[in-house]
């Protein structure tokens, strides 16, 4: 009888632990989704701001066709990107193209005096910041998730219910290095 009770108690403890780990895994996965949603909102916002920016800038920057085209192309590349790694690459390409655009805009005093441009510039740089802060939080959440999924004993339950480690959102080195190219002459 006592042995039976002990066994029963043990079973309850094991099942309880099982449920606990499973639930925390589900919780973490939802957190990752939520964190990605935040990144996505900001990426979409930037995407939507760009036509507006192009419209404003066009009238001033007559000698920067290449820079402007690079931004338009980088934006178009995002719509074409299917998988998440592709998307991430396209987004960092757009960041770099925008960085160049703002760098050359320094050479156009009329543009810099335009209220419309200034508020768009603030909006876009802030969105750029928001993307990187949301990304920072997303990566942190992904790390928490991946630790749980890959470390013992969480990995047992993760394996049973097919919890996969999530992908980090890392800016490609290339795009970051490319960004500041300001010429003063």
């Amino acid at each position: 009888m006592i042995v039976l009770l002990i066994l029963l108690g043990l079973l309850v403890v094991i099942v309880g632990w099982f449920v606990g780990v499973y639930n925390s895994l589900v919780g973490l996965r939802n957190q990752v989704k939520e964190a990605w949603a935040q990144v996505d909102v900001q990426l979409k916002r930037r995407f939507d701001l760009i036509p507006n920016l192009m419209e404003t800038v066009k009238g001033y920057m007559h000698h920067e066709r290449e820079t402007l085209e690079a931004v338009t192309q980088a934006r178009a590349a995002i719509s074409g990107a299917g998988s998440i790694p592709d998307r991430i690459k396209a987004e960092s390409g757009l960041s770099a193209a925008l960085g160049r655009l703002f760098a050359v805009s320094e050479a156009y005093p009329d543009l810099k005096a335009s209220q419309n441009f200034l508020s768009l510039q603030e909006e876009l740089t802030s969105t750029e910041n928001k993307i990187s802060f949301a990304r920072q939080f997303y990566n942190q959440t992904v790390m928490n998730m991946n630790n749980k999924v890959q470390m013992f004993p969480g990995n047992i339950i993760a394996g049973m219910f097919n919890f996969q480690p999530e992908t980090y959102f890392e800016v490609t080195e290339e795009a970051e290095r490319e960004a500041p190219k300001v010429k003063f002459d």
């Binding site: 960041s95 750029e128 910041n129 790390m143 970051e176 500041p180």
Partner: peptide, 24 residues
């Protein structure tokens, strides 16, 4: 325990770079 091990980033003193805090 949950630390990310993140590195520092440059401020906007090196302005113009994409992702720096201030545009100008």
């Amino acid at each position: 325990k949950d630390d990310g091990g993140a590195g520092l980033r440059p401020g906007s003193a090196g302005a113009g770079a994409a992702g720096s805090a201030a545009a100008a």
